[in-house]
Write a protein that binds this DNA or RNA. Structure first.
Length: 491
RNA sequence: GGCGCAUUCGUCUAGUGGUUUAGGACACCUCCCUCUCAAGGAGGAGAUCACCGGUUCGAAUCCGGUAUGCGCUACCA
């Protein structure tokens, strides 16, 4: 009978929610939900100096936005709390003291300055960096002397000098490391906070974590953890290291590559469901063809066996395509509701607020199939809202047309449109098609002229639908404005 | 420098000894649809599976070496 699955996402509030970290959270969440296990969020706030204000909220908001709900952790509590490492200091201290008492760890009094000089020296002599173990075998008298000097020590792990440490990773297989390449790493800092290594091992044990799913960059530190588990007499959880996410230049994805925080994607109008789909496919695949896959299918099919080992480059063009697919699949009302805040925020300030929801509802069908992100919606729809259109008059003159023929076309269109009974799509199309024929113009020529006059651009939603939404009054005044733009050129 | 890991179209990937003239997707190109754009449809181009050697009747798939890349090497996570 296998233990129940308990996995954790353990972010450090030292920065904003990086998509790489969020992908790790997603995989943990998917794994938990797939196996009916427990998804835990634990805050690793042991680095007091690097703590960033607001980072914690941003991380939790990111998880919530993507729908990655946690069963234990901040705000929800749980039986294994507290879930902030800063509130578990006593636990780490006890563990560290026990290790010292057992002879598996020792106090180190070396100053940061000395350590830095030591590292410089090692670098100069091209030797592998690492603590030189000066304090490993201090006598009781020597220790008393240092204490008397008022030095607060750190606790270091007494790494075995010989032998090797082996472990098995669910994704990478067996890895073997010589103990001689591992130095005596710090367990407890002089400020009383634990390092990641200690806190992580103690908490994963106490919280009964069954599987550790985390980024590949942790792979090299597993031997230390294994040694710690052994010294503490704990059973080590199963391990699965996830491939990294890289920028287009193949280095660790960072600020230089553009948006890296999940909150930025939210602001840029990506849909959470698209984001989940895209992130899931970064390092995992269902088969040889599935691209669009729902959250439910993801949960149903997720497995560690299908996680790849190779680092993936974040392809934002593909994300953008995928987001477009999701946008188009939304119901019109859903799309409208999601686009509304972006419109309120993104439309020019002179547009009257609040926006008329009825008017917006009529516009959105024309926008939905053209937007790749919600943030594009205001730009695509702007001409529906503004009173003045700004464009170059030369755009009005279509292919194979002259100023004169353009003016003639505009004038006769003006005439017909004002006489039209119903200003709807079908009658508009009928009247304008026959007008083109009368004028001896190709439909494309006439429609092109009108498109620019009415929208101010050469690329826009279908003309008749657009005109119908704009209404007769606006269309006529815009045609008039177009004529005025062209008229001075005649003189 | 040391240690570890990886290497299939530009990118994400499928592929776990023969069904592969290596499949799909994004991006790109052509054509169709069409009032422009978008979407959609049909095609195309694009990978000597990093390289070298070995095992085998047969290797992208197994083994060894080389190269390249990435990660780690903190009183950071």
């Amino acid at each position: 009978m296998s233990k129940s699955v308990r996995v954790r996402f353990a972010p450090s509030p030292t920065g904003y929610p990086h998509v790489g970290n969020i992908r790790t959270a997603l995989f943990n969440w998917l794994f938990a939900r797939h196996s009916g296990g427990t998804f835990i969020v634990r805050i690793e706030d042991t680095d007091v100096a690097r703590r960033v204000e607001g980072a914690l909220e941003a991380i939790l908001d990111g998880l919530r936005w993507l729908g990655l709900d946690w069963d234990e952790g901040p705000e929800v509590g749980g039986d294994y709390g507290p879930y902030f490492q800063s509130q578990r200091l006593e636990l780490y201290r006890e563990a560290a003291q026990r290790l010292v008492a057992q002879g598996d760890a020792y106090y180190c009094y070396c100053s940061p300055q000395r350590l830095e000089e030591m590292r410089k020296e090692q670098a100069r002599r091209k030797q592998p960096p690492g603590y030189d173990r000066r304090c490993r075998n201090l006598s009781a008298a020597e220790r008393a002397q240092k204490e008397a000097e008022g030095i607060t020590p750190v606790v270091r792990f007494k790494t075995p000098l010989e032998g090797q440490t082996k472990f098995n990773d669910l994704i990478w297989g067996e890895v073997v490391v010589e103990n001689s390449t591992i130095d005596d790493f710090v367990l407890l800092k002089s400020d009383g906070y634990p390092t990641y290594h200690l806190a992580n091992v103690v908490d994963d044990h106490l919280m009964e974590i069954s599987h550790v799913l985390r980024a590949e960059e942790w792979l090299p530190s597993v031997p230390r953890h294994k040694l710690l588990y052994q010294a503490l007499g704990y059973e080590m959880p199963l391990l699965a290291h996830l491939p990294m996410i890289l920028g287009p230049d193949r280095t660790k994805l960072s600020k230089r590559h553009g948006a890296v925080s999940i909150t930025e994607y939210q602001e840029q109008g990506y849909l959470p469901e698209a984001m989940v789909n895209f992130l899931a496919l970064l390092g995992w695949s269902l088969d040889d063809k599935t691209e669009i896959i729902s959250r439910e299918e993801l949960v149903r099919n997720f497995s560690l066996e299908r996680v790849s080992k190779t680092a993936a480059i974040f392809n934002s063009e593909k994300l953008s395509w995928m987001n477009g697919v999701y946008i188009r699949s939304l119901s019109l009302e859903d799309f409208t509701q999601r686009a509304l805040p972006f419109l309120e925020r993104g439309l020019p300030p002179e547009v009257e607020r609040p926006l008329s929801i009825d008017y917006v509802r009529r516009i959105m069908p024309l926008i939905q199939e053209r937007a790749r992100t919600l943030a594009e919606v205001p730009e695509l729809a702007e001409f529906f809202f503004t009173t003045e259109l700004e464009y170059d008059a030369s755009l009005l003159i279509g292919k194979g047309m002259t100023q004169e023929s353009t003016i003639e076309a505009l004038k006769s269109a003006q005439q017909r449109l004002s006489e039209l009974e119903r200003f709807d799509e079908e009658p508009l199309e009928a009247v304008l098609r026959s007008l083109a024929e009368e004028l001896g113009l190709k439909t494309g020529q006439l429609f092109g002229v009108l498109r620019v006059a009415v929208t101010g651009r050469t690329a826009a939603p279908p003309l008749f639908q657009t005109m119908a939404v704009l209404g007769r009054e606006k269309c006529l005044s815009r045609i008039k404005a177009a004529l005025e733009k062209l008229a001075p050129k005649l003189c």
